Computed example of a mutant assay.
Amino acid sequence: MTDVCKPNEAELPQDLERRDLIQGAGAAALVGIAGAALAASSPASSQTAQSTRSAGGTEKGSLGARLRGVQHFGVTVHNMERAFAFYTEVLGGTEIMRDGDFYGDRIQNTLLLKEEIEARERALNPRTIGVPDLRSGAQRLDVRFIQFENVVIELLQYRDREQPQGSGASFAPPRDETSPAFPRSMHVCFYIRDDVDFNQFVRDLEAEAARRGMTNVKANRIVSAASNRDRLQSPLESNTNPITEGPSDGWTLMYCKGSEGEQLEFVQVRGRAKQLFDGAIETRRRAVAALGN
């Protein structure tokens, strides 16, 4: 979310400067989350090249040719300070900027018009379906942007006007349904370096989060567990799922909840999977470069 403004304000110079800052911070995400972190070293297979041509949107005049790539992923949080500590102090991101106290007609319409119309059509109080009252200023929106190596994460908190920025009190309670199987669910994927012991990373991540009282941070295992105690006592090698066949050969993953209960994924990409991603990046770069000729 890069085009937010406070009530009754025109497009002021500081708004333009803020937008330029946010867009520049996301330039490192030019080719997306997992792919951008992989070095382009292997030629693309004909199948990968064909799929990139057909689905990559690189033809002149296409919508895809007008995009710069992924700018950021956003996570609406219940506790801004806890989430900020998790993404900066635990996962090592760097703060780009923070802003907040956003309210008024323009920001309400920009973010929540569809939900307001839906509430009106269903004869519901908008608050009952998660619509804060930014219009009058009864609620406010705060944002913080965090830079990682190849992507930007935006943290958003909707709070009551009386609550100071960054406080733990949020406009709405967190949703209990956090399964990634729900349609409309989203997740943020982080790339683990090739030389890192991935299983040990998972153990250390949970331990560091627990030390800070972040009890929501729970990583899955590849073995069944009847309780959290059983999950934590699982063998170290059960912390990650290495795929050893098919196109995903060399892809290792784990799913974990973040400090706010949001869905995260961590991956290492090697072998055949790495070659496929590397080839797709190189093919994409050549296609984009050709558009400039």
Rank of each mutant, 00 (worst) to 15 (best):
P235I: 04
F198P: 01
Y191G: 01
S224M: 05
P173N: 07
N216E: 12
E208T: 06
V202I: 12
F201V: 03
D230Y: 14
S185D: 07
F171I: 09
Q233T: 04
Q165M: 07
V188P: 03
P235L: 10
P180I: 06
L205I: 02
D249I: 10
E237H: 03
D195I: 03
G246I: 11
V202Q: 05
S167A: 09
G213I: 00
R211N: 00
E162F: 03
A209S: 15
D195F: 07
S170T: 09
Y191V: 00
A181R: 13
F182D: 10
A209P: 04
P164N: 08
P174L: 05
P242T: 08
P247A: 01
T178S: 11
S238C: 07
I222D: 08
P235T: 02
T244N: 09
V196S: 02
M214T: 05
P235W: 11
H187R: 15
D230A: 10
A181N: 06
M186W: 04
F171D: 04
G213N: 08
T178V: 14
P183M: 06
V196C: 03
I243E: 00
A225S: 11
T244A: 06
V217G: 11
P247Y: 04
K218C: 02
L236I: 12
N239R: 14
Q233M: 13
N216A: 09
D195P: 05
F182P: 00
P164R: 07
A169N: 13
D204G: 05
D160Q: 03
Q233V: 00
R229F: 03
K218R: 15
S248T: 12
R229P: 11
S179M: 14
V217L: 05
V188L: 14
T178Y: 13
L205Q: 00
A225L: 10
P173L: 13
P173T: 09
A169Y: 15
V188T: 14
A172G: 08
E177W: 05
N241I: 01
H187L: 09
F201D: 01
K218S: 08
S224Q: 08
E162Q: 13
P183R: 11
L236K: 13
D197S: 04
I222G: 02
D194A: 04
R175T: 08
Q200T: 05
I243C: 01
